[in-house]
Design a protein around this nucleic acid. Structure first.
Lengths: 216, 216
DNA sequence: ATCAACAATCGTGTATACAAGAATTGTGTT
DNA sequence: AACACAATTCTTGTATACACGATTGTTGAT
């Protein structure tokens, strides 16, 4: 129970939101949550304050907390920012690559190859996450890494939906290959450019996203 | 008192930290803060949880809260990310500029011109902030705008220090001119490039930052 | 004199009680 | 039957009380 009920609850509720168990727009009643998790209202409130600060829920004074519904447009904006940050991470990685980071990227990349080859989108979903994290780490900017990981978390559900689109697995993997080449070649600009387009949502992929979002 | 003691305290303590009244490393005692602001510990704790979530303080379980000391290296990383986000905002602004945004940029830009001409670094500090905010708004991405504003806030104290460096005012303003030209010309790539270098900390400006940070 | 162990104290973490505002339901009037 | 207003109920916001862990100071032994 994480040594501390507040932290634990924050993670617990955050996961429930990100896994869509608490749907966007849903009201989060303090008393209900307290009894559900077997604690008093105090730690629940503390968890909610934190989630509000992160931007996952909105606490309207005297009117309770609701799960924020980003809506397609805002999700698009978030992907846009994510693309930019990943681009920066990639360019830094290309410049600062060392042996350890290189091995981490290689390892996660080949795991992606396996799951993509097997057509296992759930496995690829996980391996892909590790691959991107390896790139953040290779950039050697703790702050950037934290920002990337946090945004990545928030976009996780939508990313998952995207992977279900036809042919997305193999397309994604071949993009990974080019990205790895650019980083290993020390070509920061190219790595940046490739990552931006890899992460960003252009053209038809935006309508795919909207479609899958309204589908649930 | 903002209708709600928790929110009010969050802003109050946040300002105290950003204005260096609560120095990095300083311990924040809940009881002391409670009596100081004339409330009980409950809203104080809620404010602290939020500041922890934002990343301004760290709450170590059972050991209280301390103001985070970013240190020169991390501040540099934050400027690096800020530069990237501002670059994106600039490129979006160039593409999406409309009459209202154009007027807002022009207005804040000329206010910068006045305070820079007068050599009033405090006034320029404020006008510069408004100028950058006008660019964020012109980009028409609410999420990006929020991220920029938040990071801008956290970097505020360091930015203020930087402006005191000799000639920085006129240098900064002439960079603004080029940025405005690029945006008004619809040249997104150029606006991005200029903003990146304008915001980023390269070469000697990093040592200026370090010097001014250790000076206080 | 230094270190270790134990005790006292201080501060955080959680529960509960109480107050105040919002939402809801019921009643009365048109 | 529909709308408005009032009373009740429910939920949030704050204070306080209590418990447990950490920190610090003191005492005794080596």
């Amino acid at each position: 129970m994480s040594e501390n009920a507040g932290r634990w609850l924050r993670d617990e509720i955050e996961n429930s939101i990100l896994s869509n168990e608490f749907a966007p727009g849903e009201r989060l009643d303090e008393t209900v949550l307290a009894t559900r998790f077997g604690v008093s209202r105090t730690p629940v409130r503390e968890a909610l304050m934190q989630l509000d600060a992160i931007g996952l829920i909105e606490i309207r004074p005297r009117r309770g907390a609701v799960v924020i519904d980003p809506g397609p447009h805002r999700v698009y904006e978030m992907f846009e920012v994510m693309a930019e940050l990943e681009g920066l991470a990639g360019s830094l990685a290309a410049r600062r690559l060392d042996k350890t980071s290189r091995e981490a990227i290689t390892a996660t990349h080949s795991r992606c190859e396996q799951s993509a080859g097997a057509g296992d989108s759930d496995a690829y979903y996980y391996d892909n996450e590790e691959f991107h994290k390896a790139i953040y780490a290779a950039g050697r900017s703790e702050f950037l890494e934290e920002q990337c990981v946090q945004l990545h978390r928030r976009l996780r559900p939508y990313r998952r939906l995207q992977l279900r689109v036809r042919n997305r697995l193999s397309t994604s993997f071949s993009e990974h290959c080019a990205i790895v080449d650019a980083i290993f070649a020390g070509d920061g600009d190219e790595a940046r450019r490739l990552l931006r387009t890899h992460v960003g949502i252009q053209g038809e992929r935006f309508s795919d996203l909207v479609a899958s979002m309204s589908a649930r």
